[in-house]
Amino acid sequence: MMTNTLLSLTLISAALTFMALLKENAEVAIIAAGAGLAFALISLIAGARIARRRAQDASQLQALKESSVEMTRKAQELETRLNAEQAARQDTQAQLNRAERFQETLQAEVDANNAKQKNLEAELQALRAQKAASGAAHHTREATDTAVLQFLRSLQERGRLLDFAMAEIHRMPDAQVGAAARVVHQGIKVVLQDYFDIQPISEESEGSVVNIPTVDSSKFRLLSRENGASAVQTRGRLLHRGWEARTIRLPQSMPHAAASARIIAPAEIDMQENRL
């Protein structure tokens, strides 16, 4: 646009120059020619600039065209790959479905096994309980035996009870039996007092008439009871005061106690005699 204007201006300047030359007006011709030249120069420069920009634009356009082609190619490529992947996914899904089905089968098997195991465990527990019960029974019996043997040991150690009970007493005169009985009496009384708190059940004196208690029937033994009469009979004669262990403080057996418990009193040997 500008170049066109400049060209027009150049042409106008040339026409003015020509007209000036015709009219032999040198001054105007020179000015017009100068202006014409200037316009021509300016239009030349502007033309060159425009031409350069056009060239640039053209090369850019070319580049854009090329990249567009490239993009299209890539898009095609991607599409191809997408298609391939979709196919692969379908394949995987199929595999996955197969795996799920397989897992379900396996789970069913595991469940079955678990159930079986539970049954077995229950059976085992039952067996163990059975075994423990029989063991406990054995253990209790052994512990009881040990405790009784240890109690006997104490009675022998302090009260010579076995020496007394195992002797042939019927050949002995009363005086000797009496003397021995004191040893036994004193010793076993100490043992009984150490291990129990033994008290008479009835505080009344034997032979006296007492009220028949209505509570704690296991503590009293009612003798010569007649049918029907007992319901109205409230008194009777005390024959025996009875005994009750109010507290028990028996020693505790240690593990391995059974091993030595049968030795109620070891045989004793005086080593001094050997030296003499």
Partner: peptide
């Protein structure tokens, strides 16, 4: 607690 006899503890 103390030993009362073989393998026997008494308090």
């Amino acid at each position: 607690p103390q030993l009362e006899g073989p393998a026997q503890i008494f308090k």
